[in-house]
């Protein structure tokens, strides 16, 4: 079901890109990449019942790995994508031994701090460009064809289709059921032999793979990255997408990403009309207000309401 849903979306995007102006094609790519990150985040937050406020760091690691390999080593972004996913996975694996000892609020704080620390590394490490980052990052290519906006949108959504298929298989398997069990009653599940720490660790690493892949594609499609692209605010936006769509929902991840990107566009155009002196930060302010409103009005996300309507 998830696989087919992903393919339908991919087909839709593959058609749309021929009719949309390139600006909107770029937005489609952005929504796809954000959706990919949020699918991974929903596995960790919605299914395993944990919290991560540092997901942007893994996007950054994927982006920086791929960009550094391409710029410094002339490695094709296709390999960079795999390397980005692997490095993000490795970092998540190592960090999980610190972070996953903690629970709930403390885990949220720890992931927040780790995200900030990784961003500091991006800023201070001259080898990867320091605060000015990388520019002129080589793009993806297939033979003689160098990717254009359309191709990136299709690539992003092909990855979404793959990602949602894989995640869909996981959540409907023993693995996914065990995740739900530990999120509902960790000790109860452990007394049945469920290795909760191992499950959480693997899901955290999986979420980092999704983020790393998205980051690698992001780097090549924008051809420019710097540390500010992967700040704490981006992590908060991923949580926002997750919550808006519904954390225990894979479709919700896609809906959440689309809603947040669309809202950003609306705010960008509307806020200056209402508050002429407002700058970019006001968008973030309004997204924050919306997050709080969502948590009060629809704590289980848009998809929960859709599910109730169907039932």
């Amino acid at each position: 079901m998830y696989g087919r849903f992903g393919l339908v979306l991919l087909a839709l995007v593959a058609v749309l890109v021929w009719f949309l102006p390139s600006y909107y094609t770029g937005l489609l790519t952005q929504i796809g990449l954000y959706a990919l990150v949020t699918i991974g985040l929903n596995m960790f937050m919605g299914y395993a019942g944990q919290v991560s406020l540092g997901q942007a760091a893994f996007v950054g690691i994927g982006a920086y790995t791929s960009a550094a390999l391409a710029v410094k080593g002339h490695v094709t972004p296709w390999l960079g994508l795999i390397a980005g996913a692997l490095v993000a996975a490795l970092v998540a694996y190592v960090l999980s031994f610190i972070a996953l000892r903690l629970r709930e609020n403390l885990l949220a704080l720890a992931t927040l701090a780790l995200g900030i620390v990784i961003n500091v590394v991006f800023n201070e490490w001259e080898f990867i460009g320091g605060s000015s980052g990388f520019k002129d990052i080589p793009g993806f290519a297939l033979g003689a064809f160098t990717f254009d906006q359309r191709a990136y949108a299709i690539l992003a959504w092909a990855l979404v289709a793959l990602g949602i298929w894989f995640a869909g298989n996981v959540v409907r398997s023993s693995f996914g059921r065990a995740l739900i069990a530990i999120s509902a009653g960790e000790l109860g599940a452990q007394t049945l032999g469920v290795e909760s720490e191992r499950l959480k660790r693997q899901t955290f690493v999986l979420s980092a793979v999704y983020a790393g892949v998205a980051g690698a594609v992001y780097a090549s499609s924008f051809s420019y990255i710097d540390p500010s692209s992967f700040s704490f605010l981006l992590s908060v936006n991923f949580v926002l997408m997750s919550v808006i769509g519904g954390i225990r929902s894979l479709w919700g991840a896609v809906i959440g990403a689309a809603v947040v990107v669309a809202l950003g566009q609306v705010l960008q155009n509307v806020v200056p009309l209402v508050l002429p002196s407002a700058r970019g930060d006001f968008q973030q302010f309004f997204l924050g207000v919306i997050l709080i409103a969502m948590l009060i009005l629809l704590p289980r996300g848009i998809t929960s309401r859709l599910r109730e309507a169907r039932a």
Partner: peptide
């Protein structure tokens, strides 16, 4: 108090 796996 029974531990239930809500969601399953």
């Amino acid at each position: 108090t029974p531990v239930m796996f809500w969601g399953l």
